[in-house]
Design a protein around this nucleic acid. Structure first.
Lengths: 342, 342
DNA sequence: GTGAAAGCGCTAACAA
DNA sequence: TTGTTAGCGCTTTCAC
């Protein structure tokens, strides 16, 4: 059976559809009308059709979250935070993965269909094409990540440069002097920034050796292979591996295990993102929390604020990282301590 | 600026809006008209408005996935599978978490708003109220989980009873004779079924002792506390803990560590769900894969099939579990072997 | 093959 | 306060 329309409710209540609409939406109407309409609506099980309402109001009550790699815990954490904010503001959340179908650019382009009132996008790479799509978008877009200056778009960023400094400083304090940076793909925004952060951080210490290499991607398997390559050969071994994210760090842990290296005794290992994996691994992996949950929350807030006031200036919010020290980088002490970034 | 409408495209092309619509939708139209309309649409950057289209076609091209606990890796895995199928079929995916806002029942009720063409719901508890909402739903709903017989609804279920048998048989084969089942809340569907599966499995072995207790919920922290309670006291210790899911199993691992128990030497530990956590933990946690990805995929397929043919009979698909043996339950052998359920 | 017009279900001007 | 009516942007009969 078809869902009841407001026309049927009005008919049953014996009023016009306008009155029915007003009564149901809390507009001005007599107590008697409200009562009659309420009763009729309840009897028919009427609920206003979302599509028709959207068409009339030019507002879908839907927001989108576009993510490159659903399944990556970091994106899931952001999504979870976004969902909470969005739902509590009476919006629905549409998830689009660019991995499954098209590219992030296509997803932004699709905003032209008007199926959402705004979008949060978390692109792996920011191309000119993406920037063009962003500025052409008919609805507000908030970017989780970096965007070139001058693009007038709300942005939430992590501070992975500071994050890297926290890690490197910690390792040096713990007595490590020969660091290997195991990055993910260097042509991604995270890859680029983490490399830069590592280099900057090392430069501040005069007496520290460092090298860098990359894994094929930000996964456990790639981290494992890259670590086997880097640590398995002849020549001097580093006394610490700084991994670009937790997944790679776990891969390093496994490789060290296979190579008979004891962590942290022979080798310290650190990650980044502070995912549950870092906490669960044994030894626990020292990791930098880049505030994924907080970033998701802020992005959603920014989007809602811009929808409420489209004329406001573009904001850029940077979320401060924090270091979480665990067994993988401690010489003897196993207790976890935390230090927050200024 | 406002997005262009089909009226403007028609005007620019010098044809009626009807012709414009037909030309754009591949309906019957002269080559010349198609060309003119295409050109006009491209020039204006026209894309059909999704809302107006939905209203006319009585079809939103959106599907919903309602999940109790976003953030639980199992649900994320299902979601990821669902998203893939949905996106490749030209639908968008709306995510609703019942944890954030309302209950699962409310989410099903909300289908009355007509904002999606169907829903996949994964309820923690199946109440009469939920069943009522399901049968009253104006759009198809597929349930991931158990539903009373007679409710004519498509269902995808895991076979956790068989899964439990796989685990228990494995432990007994490995020489364990005193099993502790560490369940999550017993008033949830998963809790109920896993308890039943455990009891059944144990009964098949004459010479096996068993006990059961519950953690406050299906999390690492609760598993840890419950394990500390159960293993820390006096009296005979079990030689194996069967945890109701991987998170609880990780908690058991940590508790064992704190109590100075060696896994698997002093204590075997098994989990369920075969999440990445089980793989990453050291020792790796033997776990039963209940086919979350497969269940998500099948649920999405069932939903699409029902939308295509609303009259078809309700299907119930059960996905077979598989055992993944890892270090946490092996006496000496560390190599992983897999066994599939019949 | 094309155009005029109806109508999907709703809200909001406007008039009464 | 209420009812009549227009119209959101689109697709689709129906008559030509």
């Amino acid at each position: 059976m078809r869902r009841p329309t407001i026309t049927q409710v009005a008919a049953l209540a014996g009023v016009s559809i306008a009155s029915a609409s007003r009564a149901l939406n809390g507009q001005i109407a007599s107590a008697e009308t409200v009562e009659k309409v309420r009763r009729a609506a309840a009897e028919l099980g009427y609920v206003a059709d979302a599509t028709a309402r959207s068409l009339k109001l030019r507002r879908t009550q839907q927001l989108a979250y576009a993510v490159a790699d659903i399944g990556n815990p970091v994106y899931v954490e952001m999504m979870s935070a976004v969902e909470r904010v969005v739902a509590s503001s009476g919006y629905r959340l549409v998830i689009s993965s660019s991995a499954a179908a098209s590219s992030t650019v296509d997803l932004v382009h699709d905003l032209g269909r008007g199926y959402v009132d705004g979008m949060i996008v978390s692109p792996l790479r920011v191309t000119d094409e993406l920037v063009a799509a962003l500025t052409a978008s008919p609805v507000p877009v908030v970017v989780l990540g970096r965007v070139p200056d001058g693009v007038g778009v709300d942005t939430v960023r992590a501070d992975s440069v500071t994050g890297m400094r926290l890690v490197v400083d910690h390792l040096v304090e713990a007595g490590r002097r020969d660091l290997l940076f195991l990055n993910g793909p260097a042509d991604t925004t995270p890859g680029l920034l983490r490399q830069q952060g590592f280099d900057d951080a090392v430069e501040r210490h005069g007496d520290v050796r460092s090298r860098s290499t990359t894994a094929a991607d930000f996964t456990i398997a790639s981290g494992y292979r890259a670590a086997l390559d880097a640590l398995g050969g002849a020549g001097p071994r580093p006394d610490a591996v700084v991994a670009a994210n937790d997944l790679i760090a776990i891969g390093v842990l496994h490789a060290a295990d296979d190579l008979g290296l004891r962590v942290p005794h022979d080798l310290a290992v650190t990650g980044m993102d502070n995912t549950e994996l870092a906490e669960v691994a044994r030894p626990g992996v020292t990791s930098v929390d880049l505030g994924a949950h907080e970033r998701g929350r802020v992005a959603a807030d920014l989007l809602l604020a811009r929808i409420a006031d489209p004329g406001r200036a573009a904001h850029t919010v940077t979320v401060a990282p924090s270091l979480h020290v665990r067994g993988s980088s401690a010489a003897g002490a196993a207790s976890a301590q935390e230090r927050s970034a200024g």
